[in-house]
């Protein structure tokens, strides 16, 4: 057998539901958004994505750090308190 890897690739992804840590969440005002992509490259968790030509946030892993809100030059993102039932 020809060995292809000498390092293992994990069977499953290591995933923690980090979205549950969030105490504030980013909300984007699509009208103000200039589509510059700054929030996308700086988001540590990689939670910003593009859909229908709009920048959106995936709340599954977003930890609510606020980097996207403070880096957005157009002030399109505000942090609001996370309300959970």
């Amino acid at each position: 057998m020809k060995i292809e890897w000498i390092a293992p690739i994990g069977k499953d992804r290591y995933i923690i539901k980090t979205g549950e840590w969030r105490y504030q969440k980013p909300e984007r005002n699509q009208e103000k958004c200039k589509k510059c992509g700054t929030c996308l490259i700086y988001c540590p968790t990689g939670s910003v994505y593009i859909e229908d030509d709009e920048y959106r946030t995936d709340y599954e892993f977003c930890k609510g750090c606020g980097i996207c809100a403070s880096e957005c030059r157009a002030d399109a993102i505000i942090m609001v308190e996370e309300v959970r039932e």
Binding site: R13, Y14, I15, I16, P44, G46, S47, K63, C65
Partner: peptide, 14 residues
């Protein structure tokens, strides 16, 4: 993976 437990706002994760 998106679900790694770095602190909020971790620079090393970026």
């Amino acid at each position: 993976s998106s679900g790694i437990s770095t602190c909020l706002g971790c620079g090393s994760e970026i």
